[in-house]
């Protein structure tokens, strides 16, 4: 661990608080994943880690490296941007797969919202 400059205290405090906040939100998401009863309810908690968890950790990373290098180091914000593009795709596909499979096995889910075929979107 090579330490070039001494970080100001407020920067360390902000980084520490952001890291703990992000990880606690991720933990709550995991608790929800285990505790909630219904599959569609369980689809919601993972968004905790991919939104506010990732924002907090990236912001902590930006603050820490900017302080360390004495200038803006912004590349960590690419992670939330990447997540906000990729996570909806998998979530959407999983929701549709779950609806499809539950309909096939005759569980209690809403009917297809209109007749015929796959939607092309």
């Amino acid at each position: 661990m090579i330490q070039t400059v001494e970080l100001p205290f407020w920067l360390e405090l902000a980084t520490a608080v952001l890291l703990l906040t992000g990880s606690l939100f991720a933990l709550v998401g995991a608790i929800g994943l285990v505790r909630l009863k219904d599959y569609f309810q369980r689809m919601h908690p993972p968004a905790l880690a991919s939104t506010i968890g990732a924002w907090c950790v990236s912001l902590a990373s930006i603050l820490y490296f900017s302080g360390l290098k004495q200038g803006p180091v912004l590349h960590a914000w690419l992670i939330p941007i990447l997540l906000s593009i990729t996570v909806p795709v998998t979530t959407l596909l999983l929701a549709r797969a779950a609806l499809f499979r539950k309909r096939m096995s005759g569980e209690q889910v809403p009917d297809e919202v209109s007749s015929g075929g796959d939607r092309g979107n």
Binding site: T51, A95, L99, V113, R119
Partner: peptide, 12 residues
């Protein structure tokens, strides 16, 4: 989908 409280499930 990004807002945790809602999940887009299906579109007609």
């Amino acid at each position: 989908t990004v807002v945790p409280g809602t999940v887009w499930s299906e579109l007609a």
